[in-house]
Every structure is written in C-alpha cells, then in structure tokens.
Simulated scan of single mutants.
Amino acid sequence: MKALLLRVGIDKGCGGALSPIFEDGSFEYIPIPESDSETHETRTYQNTLGIKNKPLADFLPFKICQSKIHFDPEFETFTYGDPSKSKRKSLLKLDKNDLLVFYVGLSPYQNNKYPNALYIIGYFVIKKVIDFSELSKEEISKFCNLYSNNSHIKCDNLKGLVIVEGDKYRSTLLDKAILISKPKQNKIGRPYHAVSPEMEKLLGIKGSIQRSIPPRMIRDSECMENLKKLLKM
C-alpha cells in the first residue's frame, strides 16, 4: 500500500485567494476556476453554497465570483482527473486500495487561531485508475458516461487524461483540516511552505510542498500506518 499527496484547490496563483479555515477547524474546499470556456459545468462560485450555507463567492475576490468552477477532485462520485505529463505518470502508479491524499492552502477566516498554511482536506481509497489514452472509442464513451461528474469530462478534455476513481464507501472530504506545513524562507528570503517537522517524522517526506509537482509518494509501511492514523482510517 502506498499514498500519493497532491495539492489541489484555489490558491493565490490560480484564482487569487485561499480557501478559508474556520475557528473549529472546519473549512471550505474551494476548487480552482474553470479555464475552459467550452465546459458543460453550470456551477459558479456565486450559485454554489459551501458548508456554512453561504455562496463560495463570499470568500473570494469579486472578479472571479461569476466564474465557473473546476471541481477536481470532486467528492460526490469521488473522481480526480489530470491530463498533464507531470501528474499522469504518478497517478498511473497508483493501484487498488492505495491512497490519493489531497491538501490545499487555507487562510484563517476572521483572524482565528489557525495559521495560513497547507492542510490535508480529504482522500480517496483507490478503486480504479483509468488511462484514457489506452481506451477504445467504445470504452471512452462508457467511461465518459460513468465519470460524467468530472470536470475534464465536462470539458471534453480527454487527451492524455487519467482519471482516478475513489471507493465511495471509503473515500471522504474531511470535517476538519490537518495541518502539514510550516512557513520557511529560501536563501534570498522568499517565503514558501515546507513540510512541518512533525509531518517529516510521521510521513517521511520533507522540503517544499508549495506546489504539487513533483507529487510526493509515501511507500514506507510505518509512514503509511502513521498517515492512516492521521486520517483516522
């Protein structure tokens, strides 16, 4: 068993904001804005309510409030897709019952006790990994129907696409976020988010996790047990 950690969700570089974390440790998972104008998606930040029963737009810059949302990963039918060379290679290494763990940048809402940092917000227990480049036309049609809730399918963006399907009974969006980073500075004083010392010890990974490239793979059995305890699996 192994686990792949990926950063997802809106951030300062894509969307111009971070999702909020609240006083009780709960959070809004806010995906990135959809960049494909041909998408069949109808949900926008303005017409989509979050866990606080408020439009997601309430937590975002005005300029993107009417933007359509690129829900990926999505936690309704539990799919995640990516066509990029940098990620598809890692996704294709996942096997049934492995973990795909998602982390995001969160910012404290109304100056609460939580730091502006990176947090684990959910995971998939892998059911299937589908490489669309290996499918026949008939199989593509079948999986497009099966994964119609995925943003890449809604955009008809299938070239190089890999879709990971999570087991719906064992995959989840967490109720409370799990802090995994600590701010540091590089040699020229530029800040970045690195794995916290506690998580280095528990998960066996270190260094910058500011971006999801390269994706971090956890293979060590002891580290995997620590991760499962962290996720309360």
Rank of each mutant, 00 (worst) to 15 (best):
Q185H: 13
R190S: 13
P33L: 12
K128I: 06
L161F: 05
P183G: 04
I178M: 01
K127E: 15
L91I: 13
S196D: 07
I218S: 03
L161M: 04
M1V: 06
G81T: 03
K12Q: 12
R43T: 10
I21D: 04
F27L: 04
L231N: 04
S86M: 11
I163Q: 03
G13Y: 12
D58Y: 14
R43S: 15
K206W: 10
L4K: 02
K182D: 15
E139M: 06
T44D: 01
Y80M: 09
A17P: 02
E138N: 12
D167M: 09
N157I: 00
S90L: 06
G160A: 07
I51D: 12
E34A: 01
N47V: 07
L4D: 09
I64H: 08
S212N: 13
S196K: 10
D167I: 10
P215W: 03
Y109W: 15
T77K: 15
N53V: 01
V129K: 05
R7Q: 14
F27K: 02
K2F: 09
P31H: 10
S37R: 10
K113W: 01
G189V: 09
E38M: 13
K142M: 13
R43V: 00
P215C: 11
K93T: 15
S86Q: 14
E38H: 13
R216D: 09
E41F: 04
L94F: 10
D95Y: 12
L174A: 10
N150V: 06
I121G: 07
S148N: 14
Y147K: 09
L231K: 01
L118W: 00
L161C: 05
N149Y: 12
A17T: 07
Y123E: 04
P83W: 01
S35I: 08
E165Q: 15
L18M: 11
I121M: 10
K85F: 15
K85T: 14
E76W: 05
D175R: 12
E38V: 08
Q185L: 14
S208Y: 00
D82L: 06
K12W: 03
L91W: 11
A57M: 05
P83F: 02
S151K: 00
I30K: 05
V129T: 13
K142T: 13
S37F: 08
I218C: 07
N145M: 11
D131G: 03
V8A: 08
C14A: 14
K2A: 00
K128W: 01
M217T: 15
I153M: 04
R190P: 00
R190E: 11
I121H: 08
R211M: 11
S26G: 05
S26Y: 07
E222M: 14
I69T: 01
L92A: 09
I121E: 03
Y103K: 02
K12Y: 12
F132G: 03
K201S: 14
S141A: 14
L179Y: 02
E23Q: 10
E76L: 09
K232L: 13
P31T: 06
L202I: 06
I69N: 01
T39M: 04
N186A: 07
L202F: 12
P183L: 05
S171H: 09
K137M: 05
Y192E: 04
E41D: 09
L56Q: 03
L158C: 02
G166P: 07
L94P: 03
P20N: 03
